[in-house]
Design a protein around this nucleic acid. Structure first.
Length: 560
RNA sequence: AGACCCAUGGUGUAAUUGGUAACACAGCAGAUUUUGGUUCUGUCAUUCUAGGUUCGAGUCCUAGUGGGUCUACCA
């Protein structure tokens, strides 16, 4: 991984804060951030951004990043997700070393914190129902009312809180609340709930607890316990910050600081957990790792390199305003990475047979092909040529438009790494469908030693019929037809589902070397795009995913 | 309705903290090319509006407008 030195030019606002802190000697110049996923779902592109920001910023300032699972709600969380989350973070290229924590590790400490606040007269047990509490809460424009249980004595609160812990009360019958300010314009300061009773099995603490802390009484305290210096989160937690600070101040513990930044939105993608789940549950996609999904697992299977995702998140930047990053930037980063790293190979997705009429019957020859013109060190390989080839159906037109410089009756083209050919005859079946092309080749036009002087404007990819291997190829388009599928109040996001987002080509023809390709391997199919071997591949039946097409300025020009 | 946050090209992020708008993507035009790929060049902005402070404002102040967030025993 490249260590991106930020230099002096252009710091984002978080980096500015950190540099000021370092300059002033705060925390002795230490930087410790954290990535705090809740283990109740799969990571997606939005999490990737949070990961890159948290790990990236710490790295930049010689700091570290903790991984902490925010597992304070046992009814929604599960260990199953812990493993997938860890795998995804590692795959993205980040390492939390031995700093793997769980908010549940702190349940004992958190309970003590709760008791401490009671003793300080800053927390009380409330017997009100959820409905009553909601009603007493007031609204943003109307102050709330204080609970009738607010004035209990410290002793009573302490014993009630202990009773809650010991399972003496029914679920939902009591909560522990902080004594905030029921008339605060900030709803989160109106006696926020710290603990609730839940008789639920926790994925780590089992049945030890029947009371669980709320986010506001777990997250900041966990940060503080770990000595997190900069707790980076998304904008919607802005209103929680006064509470975050209040608990730390009243508890008199390590002063972690919360800093909010805008989460990243990407056009044509959704990141709502609920909506993603719906796509899976209702079989719009094949699973959480469907290559069309914006999940890390999906992007991995699609063939997006982790480095490309990292660069993408970095280029998207960090700020406080709402944003919608164009998916084209992600695509650019993916192509940029793949262009550098992928071997070029030839594969014909939609075949049209070409017979070289003047090529000696039964002859074959092996031609040299450069693996990657961007990287000489990747070397070259030999590919077979014969008198019977496949070319791409779209590379031939019987009545071509003006600037078409592919194959047409009487036209010449260069076959990549091979010879120049001229199309002499179009063979059709009884329905008038083109079944083959009869072409002539120029023996002295061989790539690298061309003395023919035959003019050829275009270059086509091809595959030798007798040597070709076959594969299933899956091509993907955007999952949604709208740049902001969940941005319409009046339309459901599913209305924008793109039914053409998956196209399966059962039989594509590939150069023979691809027979041994292993799952995960990536290639550029010349003139088509980047492809990776899917995990659905079986011996002898490879499956390729199209990660992304090559830019196609000809196709673009045709649309106009 | 209240409180809080935000406002710079089509998109996103910058602007040495008050000194005359930069970078990337996208678009458009062109050059190179045995991938219509890559690469290269050129081109694309009344900094939301109106006032004010200042020699000087994208940066500061005031008002307005627009967008977002907040009223879960979720995180």
């Amino acid at each position: 991984m490249s260590t991106e030195t930020k230099g002096k030019e252009s710091l984002n606002f978080i980096e500015q804060i950190i540099e000021e802190d370092i300059a002033s000697g705060k925390h002795n110049g230490t930087v410790l951030t954290r990535f705090p996923p809740e283990p109740n779902g799969y990571l997606h592109i939005g999490h990737a951004k949070a990961i890159v920001v948290n790990f990236g910023i710490a790295q930049r300032y010689g700091g570290k990043t903790n991984l902490r699972f925010d597992d304070t709600n046992p009814v929604t969380e599960d260990t199953e997700y812990v493993e997938s989350i860890k795998r995804d973070i590692r795959w993205l290229g980040f390492d939390w070393e031995d700093r793997e924590f769980f908010a549940s590790d702190y349940f004992d400490q958190l309970y003590e914190f709760g008791a401490d606040l009671i003793k300080k007269g800053l927390a009380y047990v409330d017997d009100s129902s959820a409905e009553q509490i909601a009603e007493m809460k007031g609204t943003p424009v109307a102050p709330g009312k204080e609970s009738p249980y607010r004035s209990r004595t410290v002793e009573e609160n302490l014993s009630l809180f202990e009773g809650m812990k010991n399972g003496e009360f029914e679920e939902g019958s009591r909560v522990l609340r902080a004594k905030g300010d029921m008339s605060s314009p900030n709803m989160h300061m109106r006696d926020p709930i710290m603990y609730r009773i839940k008789y639920a099995h926790h994925h780590r603490t089992g049945d030890k607890w029947c009371i669980y802390p709320m986010y506001d009484f777990a997250h900041g305290q966990s940060d503080s316990i770990e000595g997190i210096t900069h707790s980076l989160c998304s904008l919607e937690f802005r209103h929680h910050r006064p509470l975050y600070d209040w608990f730390i101040e009243k508890l008199d513990i390590f002063p972690s600081r919360q800093i909010e930044f805008a989460r990243m939105n990407v056009s044509y993608m959704i990141t709502s957990k609920r909506k993603l789940l719906k796509l899976v549950k209702e079989n719009y996609v094949s699973g959480w790792d469907d290559p069309r999904m914006p999940t890390i697992a999906g992007m991995r299977r699609r063939g997006f390199p982790p480095a490309a995702i990292r660069t993408f998140c970095e280029r998207a930047g960090v700020a406080k305003r709402d944003n919608l990053i164009e998916i084209e930037l992600l695509e650019f980063c993916v192509r940029e990475e793949l262009n550098r790293t992928c071997s070029r190979v030839m594969g014909v997705l939609d075949p049209l047979k070409v017979i070289i009429t003047n090529y000696p019957e039964g002859q074959e020859e092996w031609l040299e092909a450069i693996n990657n013109p961007e990287d000489e060190s990747m070397g070259s390989r030999q590919i077979p040529f014969s008198g019977e080839l496949y070319i791409e159906k779209e590379d031939f037109m019987e009545n071509p438009p003006k600037k078409f410089f592919r194959l047409a009756p009487g036209a010449n083209v260069r076959l990549k790494n091979a010879y120049i050919i001229t199309c002499d005859e179009v063979i059709k079946d009884e329905n008038g469908e083109i079944t083959a092309l009869h072409c002539r080749y120029y023996p002295d036009s061989k790539s690298g030693e061309d003395t023919s002087t035959v003019p050829a404007k275009g270059t086509l990819h091809w595959v030798s019929v007798p040597h070709a291997g076959t594969a299933e190829v899956r091509r993907y388009d955007r999952l949604f037809a709208d740049p902001e599928p969940d941005g319409h109040e009046d339309r459901d996001f599913l209305e924008f589902f793109n039914p053409g987002s998956l196209e399966v080509l059962p039989k594509a023809y590939l150069e023979p070397g691809l027979k041994d390709a292993r799952a995960g391997e990536q290639f550029q199919f010349m003139r088509k795009g980047y492809f990776c071997v899917d995990t659905d591949s079986t011996p002898g039946n490879p499956v390729f995913n199209q990660t992304i097409s090559l830019k196609d300025s000809w196709a673009k020009a045709q649309k106009k």
